[in-house]
């Protein structure tokens, strides 16, 4: 798994420093219309599967109890969705490039090569970027999509003691504490 084969340990880096290195302050707005109206160039690259996997696994990492997002196929679902949605495909491709570029500015070969904290710094920059800029749209869209896929997988429910889906069994012990019924 990409996230566990980190070669470059990059310490915590301030958001301001990273933004400066990335030239983000001057980044033009990445209007969603650009990809949905097909205005992007034909030369849009393929998304990097490694980068995307590292991205979703940083958003929803594995732990003692939770599986990482990629173990539930979240990254594959993003790529599958992108196959039938050219706008999404362009967003993911451009977004992965942006993540890799950010990683290179921190001395790593690519996003997936960074340490967990390095990847987190970059994602934090994306999260706090100007609304509708590429990094912000990438973060918001992939996070939303990843949460949907992740929490629609019963493997993510175990640690939460969630005994769903709601049917066909319902919740017969609904009138008792969940401690008594799980």
């Amino acid at each position: 798994m990409a996230t566990s084969t980190t070669h470059h340990e990059v310490g915590k880096i301030s958001r301001r420093v990273l933004m400066r290195r990335m030239g983000l302050a001057a980044l033009t707005f990445w209007l969603p219309a650009r990809w949905s109206l097909g205005l992007a160039s034909d030369a849009d690259p393929e998304p990097s599967a490694e980068t995307l996997r590292a991205f979703v696994d940083t958003l929803l990492p594995g732990s003692d109890v939770f599986p990482p997002a990629s173990a539930l196929g979240v990254d594959r679902s993003v790529l599958e969705a992108a196959q039938s949605d050219p706008g999404l495909a362009r967003l993911i491709a451009a977004g992965c490039q942006w993540l890799d570029r950010a990683a290179r500015s921190m001395g790593a070969a690519s996003f997936s090569e960074l340490s967990g904290s390095g990847r987190a710094s970059i994602i934090s920059v994306a999260e706090h970027s100007a609304e509708r800029s590429l990094p912000w749209v990438l973060f918001s869209s992939v996070r939303r999509f990843s949460f949907q896929k992740y929490y629609s997988a019963p493997e993510s429910w175990g640690p939460l003691a969630y005994a769903g889906p709601p049917q066909p069994l319902g919740f017969p012990g609904h009138d008792r504490s969940p401690k008594e019924t799980t």
């Binding site: 958003l59 109890v65 994602i123 999260e127 949460f147 640690p159 969630y162 709601p166």
Partner: peptide, 28 residues
């Protein structure tokens, strides 16, 4: 607030390890 997804998106928010920790403390 009907299941894990709504908690994740609307109550817990965030991402990463902190998100998971808070899911454990808040879900239900």
């Amino acid at each position: 607030l009907s299941g894990p997804l709504n908690y994740a998106q609307r109550i817990v928010g965030g991402w990463g390890e902190k998100h998971h920790e808070q899911m454990l403390g808040m879900f239900g």
